[in-house]
């Protein structure tokens, strides 16, 4: 505790609560128009258009999963070709050692296994999950963010961040409640 560092909670952001998805979408668009960039929104359901409204796009997942699938296909094919030509070379049913039609099913399953595993793991990894606690959970409004509340947050790292201005800005857009959230994370 006595590291001589400032360990007092720092501001994390300003959180506004809305009652439905349309208001959230509207408010998010206006917030972005007002010049804020470090925006995040939280909703119980995926809201279409929200990622565009906060100016976020990420399509890395497709390519990474495609790569994983290709790896799986090569691994499956490689395993079969290697075992049936080099280490376990047996003649079965008069079929050639490299029986590509018969190698196809395992190749296919390996492709799918690798892609599905990658899609799941990478989705969580890119999302920074698992992360049991996140500063935004300090907001009271987040208690219902997984049920029926739509939350907008402008984070403190935004260059234009100003708690008071944001609070009145959010109130002006009809937010149900507005909170300033503090965090002790990062020490």
């Amino acid at each position: 505790m006595s590291h001589g560092r400032d360990t007092a909670p720092k501001p994390f952001g300003v959180v506004a609560e809305f009652l439905d998805a349309e208001s959230l979408l509207e408010a998010t668009r206006k917030t972005r128009e007002a010049g804020y960039r470090a925006i995040d929104a939280f909703s119980p359901v995926p809201v279409h258009g929200l990622t565009d409204a906060i100016g976020f796009d990420d399509s890395r997942l497709s390519w990474q999963v495609f790569g994983a699938g290709l790896t799986g296909a090569l691994a499956g094919l490689g395993l079969q070709v290697w075992t049936s030509t080099a280490v376990y070379r047996h003649l079965v049913g008069g079929k050639p050692f490299i029986s590509l039609p018969m190698f196809f099913p395992v190749l296919y399953e390996c492709t799918i296994l690798f892609s599905a595993g990658a899609a799941t793991v990478l989705m969580f990894k890119l999302n920074g999950l698992p992360k049991p606690h996140h500063p935004v959970f300090n907001a009271k409004a987040m208690d219902r963010a997984s049920s029926d509340r739509y939350i907008l947050c402008v984070e403190a790292e935004d260059p234009n961040y100003d708690e008071e201005a944001l609070t009145s800005f959010f109130h002006g857009m009809g937010a149900e409640s507005v909170e300033s959230v503090r965090t002790s994370e990062g020490y």
């Binding site: 049913g93 008069g94 039609p101 018969m102 196809f104």
Partner: peptide, 12 residues
């Protein structure tokens, strides 16, 4: 097409 081929080819 592949199923038909595979079944006939492997049965021989």
């Amino acid at each position: 097409a592949f199923s038909q081929y595979l079944i006939i080819w492997s049965g021989h």
